[in-house]
Simulated assay, not measured.
Amino acid sequence: MHEKQKHLYVGVDLHKQHHVAVIINCWQEKLGELKFENKSAAFSTFLLNIDKLMEEGLIPVFGLEDVGGY
C-alpha cells in the first residue's frame, strides 16, 4: 500500500461561530462533511465523528485554514 493511502485527509475551514471540515481519501473522493461549533466542548464530538469515518489502519491528517483575519 502506498504511503498516501494510509491517511484520511481532513481539511478544516475555520469561522468565528462554527467550523466546517471536509474529509477525503488519497484519490480526492469526498467521504464526508462535518459542521461543528467553535466551542471547546464541540471538538471531542468532532474527533469522534472523524473516528467513525476511518477504516482500520488509517491515520488522520488535519489541515487548517489560515486564521490571519482573526
Rank of each mutant, 00 (worst) to 15 (best):
E65F: 02
Q28R: 10
E55I: 01
E3V: 11
G57K: 12
G68S: 14
A42N: 08
K6D: 13
F46R: 06
S44V: 00
K4V: 06
Q5A: 11
Q5Y: 14
E3R: 12
F62M: 04
S40G: 07
K35I: 07
G68E: 06
G11Q: 03
H19S: 13
G69P: 09
S40R: 15
I24R: 10
H19Q: 04
E56W: 08
H2D: 11
E29K: 13
D13K: 00
V10K: 09
G63R: 03
K39Q: 15
I59M: 13
K6V: 03
W27A: 08
P60Q: 13
K16D: 12
I23D: 09
C26W: 14
H2N: 14
L8E: 05
V12T: 01
F36G: 07
K39W: 00
S40A: 07
E33V: 04
E65K: 01
L58R: 11
E37G: 01
H7Q: 05
M54W: 12
V22Y: 04
L31R: 15
I59Y: 00
S44D: 13
W27Q: 10
V67G: 04
E37H: 02
I59W: 06
L53N: 11
F46Y: 04
L14I: 06
S44P: 05
D66M: 03
E3T: 04
I50R: 11
G63H: 09
F36P: 04
F62L: 15
A42V: 05
Q17Y: 07
L64K: 01
F43I: 15
L48I: 02
G69H: 04
I24K: 10
D51G: 11
E3F: 10
N25A: 05
M1I: 02
E3D: 14
V22N: 09
D51A: 15
N25E: 10
A41N: 05
K52H: 08
V22G: 03
G32T: 03
D51C: 12
A41F: 01
A41Y: 11
K30E: 15
K16V: 10
E56M: 01
E65I: 06
A42C: 09
I24W: 02
G32F: 08
K52C: 09
W27Y: 15
L8Y: 00
L14G: 06
E29M: 07
E65C: 05
G57W: 02
V10N: 02
F43Y: 15
Y70K: 00
D51I: 07
Y70M: 11
D66Q: 10
K39A: 13
G63D: 00
E55K: 15
L53M: 10
K35F: 08
L53S: 03
K4A: 13
N49V: 05
K52W: 05
M1N: 14
F36H: 09
A41D: 13
F36L: 05
K4G: 06
T45I: 11
Q17K: 12
I50T: 01
K30Q: 14
L47H: 08
